[in-house]
Design a protein around this nucleic acid. Sequence first.
DNA 1: CAGTGGTCTAGACCACTGA
DNA 2: CAGTGGTCTAGACCACTGA
Lengths: 242, 242
Amino acid sequence: MVSSAPAPLASLAPYAQVKQYLKGRLGAGDWPPGVLMPSEAELVAQFSVSRMTVNRALRELQAEGLIERVQGVGTFAAQLHKVSSTLTLRDLHEEIAERGHHHEAKVVAQEEVRATNGLAGQLGLKPGAPVFHTLIVHLENGVPLQCEDRYVNPACAPDYLAQDFAKTTPTHYLFEATALWRAQYSIEAGRATKDEAKLLGIAPTDPCLIIVRRTFTTDSAITLARLVHPGTRYGLEGHFTP
Amino acid sequence: MVSSAPAPLASLAPYAQVKQYLKGRLGAGDWPPGVLMPSEAELVAQFSVSRMTVNRALRELQAEGLIERVQGVGTFAAQLHKVSSTLTLRDLHEEIAERGHHHEAKVVAQEEVRATNGLAGQLGLKPGAPVFHTLIVHLENGVPLQCEDRYVNPACAPDYLAQDFAKTTPTHYLFEATALWRAQYSIEAGRATKDEAKLLGIAPTDPCLIIVRRTFTTDSAITLARLVHPGTRYGLEGHFTP
DNA sequence: CAGTGGTCTAGACCACTGA
DNA sequence: CAGTGGTCTAGACCACTGA
C-alpha cells in the first residue's frame, strides 16, 4: 500500500487489490498471452505486502485460468484458448419461479417397471430389475415447457413413488433425498417422440432441445432423465468473464 | 500428520490431505447438506498443521461449491442444489482434429457489408457502418458439421478479410488477434434457414442445434457468430464432479 | 548458481455471530 | 463473552529451471 502501488482502492483486502491490478492489466492487453509476468518477489516489493498475500492472488488467478505458472520458471499470461463457461442445469421449478411465472406439473405416469437391458446398463442394475419411472410434463404459465421422462434407481430413493410430483419436482426431491456426487449430460437438437409431441402440444417434426442427464452418488447411478423442450420455448444461456 | 489424522497419504501436500479427507467424508454423506462441519481450530488440532493450511483447504472447497462458510458462525456442508458444469465452447478445428478426423472449411462468403440496425446494436456500431462478414461450412471427414455465419467488428480485427479461412478458422484467428475478455452465448434447437440447409445437406425441417455467441474485449464487441449444426451430427456433452 | 514458484508455520488482529 | 472465519505477516525449506 505504498505510493508505487497503483490505485490502492480503499476497503479491498490486499490480496484482492493485487488480483484486481493484475486482472486489469491483463484485460488491457498489457501482457499478451504467453508473456512473462512479474514474479512474486516483484509484486511483493511493488505492493509492500507479504509473499503469501501475493501468492494467494496469483493462485486464484491461476484457478480462474487467467495465468499459468511454472515452478522454477515464472508466471505467464494464459492463452485464453477456450471459452469455458459454467452451464448450470437447475431445477425447472426454481427457474420458472425466478421468472415470476407459474409452474405446474402434470404427472402422466408414476410406476414401477422392469429395467430393459439398455436401461439396466445405464443405471448399473441387472436387466429385469425393478426401476421407478415417472413421466411428467412441466408447464410455465400453462404452456408445456418440458417433458421429463425419468428412471430412478430404487436403492437410492426407495420412497420415490410415494411422492406427489405435482407439488415437488423429481429433481428437487432427489437433491434432498440423495447424496448427489457426479452428473453427466448431453445436449442435442432432435425430435420429440409422437407421445412427447402430443404431451407438449407441438408437431412431431418441431425441433426440440433434448437434454439427457445421469446423476450418481459416489458409488452408483441415481437416475437417468430425458428432458425434451420445444425449441421455440426453451434455450440455454450462459456467459463467460474471467 | 499425527496418528489421530486418518490416512496421511504419503507425498500429498498437507493442505491437499485435509481437503481430500473432507471431500471423502462429504462424498460418503457423513455431513448431510446444511450440517455444521468441524471448525478450523478442530482441524488444526486433528491434523497438527497450522491454521493457514487448514484455511487453504477449506477456501478451495468453498470455491468448488462443496461447503459454505459464515464468519462468526462456522462451516457447513453445502446444498448441492444445482449441477453446474463447465461447458467449453472450443475451436471446431481442434475438436475434430482431436477425434483424429479430417477438417475442411468451405468459404462461401468473405466480404465487407453494411451493418443493419439489429447487427449494429449487437456489435455496438452505428447502423450502416462497415462490418466484416464470413459464411463458412465446416466438414468433418467430408460431412457438413457446422454452418458458421459470422460478423466481425473491423476495429478489433482489421486484417480479418485478408485471412485464408480454409487454413485457419475464424475462431482460432480471433483468439490470436484479439484480446478476448468476455463471451455470451445461447444454445437452442431450431431449424436452419433454406440456404443453411442446402449448405449442410439436410432437409429444411431437420432439427438443428444453434449456438449464437458474442465475444467482447474489455470495451467493445468483437464478433457475433451463429453456428448451426445438424442435430443428428452434433451435440454437447459435459459432466460434473465436485 | 540465482531466481522461480509450492508450501508451511506460528503467530497476529480483526469483524462477526450468538449466548 | 468465547468461538468463528477472513486475512496478513515475516520468516522458512524445498524442488525446480536455466545459465
